[in-house]
Design a protein around this nucleic acid. Sequence first.
DNA 1: TTAGAAAAGGGGAAAATTCCCCTTTTTTGT
DNA 2: ACAAAAAAGGGGAATTTTCCCCTTTTCTAA
Lengths: 213, 213
Amino acid sequence: MKKYDVVIVDDHLLFAQSLKGLVDSFEEFNVLFHANNGQELVDKLNTVSNTPHIVLMDVNMPVMNGIEATAWLRKNKPEIKVLALSMEDDENLIIKMIKKGARGYLLKDIHPTELQTALQEVIDDGFYHTKHVSKILQKSMHGMVKNESQLSDNELRLLELVCSEKTYAEIANEMYLSPKTIDGYRESLFKKIGVKSRVGLVLYAIKNGLYQL
Amino acid sequence: MKKYDVVIVDDHLLFAQSLKGLVDSFEEFNVLFHANNGQELVDKLNTVSNTPHIVLMDVNMPVMNGIEATAWLRKNKPEIKVLALSMEDDENLIIKMIKKGARGYLLKDIHPTELQTALQEVIDDGFYHTKHVSKILQKSMHGMVKNESQLSDNELRLLELVCSEKTYAEIANEMYLSPKTIDGYRESLFKKIGVKSRVGLVLYAIKNGLYQL
DNA sequence: TTAGAAAAGGGGAAAATTCCCCTTTTTTGT
DNA sequence: ACAAAAAAGGGGAATTTTCCCCTTTTCTAA
């Protein structure tokens, strides 16, 4: 029987290596290769003739992260199915990955047998949603998740820059905008997010993974 | 040849499982059992007659974390050697674990062969320091690491409360102290930590786990 | 017990943040 | 081409943060 080819994209070498052992131990699957980040995946797919059926994709990675890599795959290799596998249990991150094309989102603390089930279902049904992911998707359909997609690009940019010791004047300078414009963005962010101080913005940005510590 | 027994303590099941596979593949080592957190380790060590030579200890875990578990081991099972294995690359955390008795601190992105080397050296020499850990220890000996142990109780308390939308006046009220006293603590924290704004304090507190999101 | 250190508190002011209400410029849909 | 909407910018002021230098109270060790 032909095995399905899996590619692992993860910057934690130890995890990736042992994950490979686990996946290889599954009857129906076989690890084709491993990439340390999104960019390495893209490079390897462009040179190697063999394309995998499934990519097990970490989300937080240096150089090119899982979101960008998944977007690239959908555009350039749409036949490859992406299964996200991350430590981050974050509603917005999960939604973002699925919007970009991930067929499911597993947390790294799942049971090994669930990984096998997930891989098989992605092959058979085209997706695999854990109960947890289903619940988040349900909520997001009803607008229960404050998704930052309703924040403008500049507001998002400010939200990141606010997580620093820069003053608003310095931030305005960096964004080539008037301090008054920045003040407007700030006010808008306060309203949309529901906070009343810069510290509130910082806390929100960090909780929602918009600012990487 | 008798193999050395290893116990894995990690709340990420998938990682733990595949790590077990890796360790079992080493000639000289054998995984005795796995615990999901420090408390489970303590329970199992108290019921099982067999004690391991080495514990591979994650740091961030629910219920009882790696620091508490390592402290318990030093007090109750000093013959067991702890090797920390974590994602967290944080100077204070590394120092804290080693102070509590860890024989080394590995990051989860090391190469699998280095894990084998580390296990072997912990058995042979009693410790294994990566270049990274050695550098941090060297720095800490020269007071180059800003360790939060030199922050007073009130300063630490303020550092937590600062991670909120409260004003300093409100914080003063909550701590039953004059706003001016709080102002003094704040100034002292700025100096000790090396920041110049409240956002700087928030970022420091979060990076160092002093404030739980 | 008594001097010195540490903790707590204060005055005052410049800088930064927050808030509200308003104008100009740019973009967009038809 | 033009009206409406969105983005950018402004005036002005209250509040909060930040900073510096100083006094009083409390703890601590000789």
